[in-house]
């Protein structure tokens, strides 16, 4: 029996077509409504997840990046960039590129940003080598003390670049 002449087959095809179109129509409306209701909050969740990922993998400060983590840890301005023999304040003065690079290092004190900062200082001051450290503040509630701990450091020679 050919497909064309089979009444069951035609009936089945018609049924699936109607069912699919009904389902599709319903799905379309539901999807639309769902997208409108949950679309924007979902984007907000994605932003938070990305921020938390960066906090845990790239040492981003909880204060920034759209994760609503302000007032949950000490502000990144308490991080300290230390370059032996150089004043960071004078480095960033009237140098927007340096200010931006060192600012990123304060905000995300990781190896990548430390290397970027070291390269920039080397290039700007035509030095042969540079040693940069980034320190984070630590408060010991038991001993009532405030101190700094070394987060990352780099020693970069021009010949290694």
């Amino acid at each position: 029996m050919s497909k064309k002449t089979c009444p069951y087959n035609r009936c089945f095809l018609k049924f699936t077509k109607v069912a699919f179109s009904l389902f599709y129509f319903k799905m379309n409306t539901t999807t639309k409504q769902g997208l409108l209701k949950y679309g924007i909050p979902s984007i907000a969740i994605i932003v938070v997840v990305i921020q938390l990922f960066l906090v845990n993998t790239k040492d981003l400060s909880r204060w920034k990046g759209g994760g609503y983590g302000m007032y949950t840890e000490m502000h990144y301005v308490y991080n300290q960039i230390y370059i032996p023999g150089m004043s960071v304040d004078s480095l960033v003065k009237d140098n927007p590129k340096m200010k931006s690079t060192l600012g990123h290092l304060m905000l995300m004190p990781n190896k990548i940003n430390l290397k970027k900062a070291a390269k920039l200082v080397l290039d700007t001051f035509k030095k042969d080598s540079i040693h940069i450290q980034i320190w984070k503040p630590v408060v010991n509630v038991e001993k009532e003390t405030y101190t700094r701990v070394l987060k990352e450091e780099i020693r970069l020679n021009k010949s290694n670049l």
Partner: peptide, 19 residues
């Protein structure tokens, strides 16, 4: 998100942030 950030921050939980 603010609650999750606070719970996952050791500085916040041990009180050193507020201190």
């Amino acid at each position: 998100a603010s609650v999750i950030q606070k719970l996952s921050s050791s500085q916040f939980i041990n009180g050193s942030f507020y201190y």
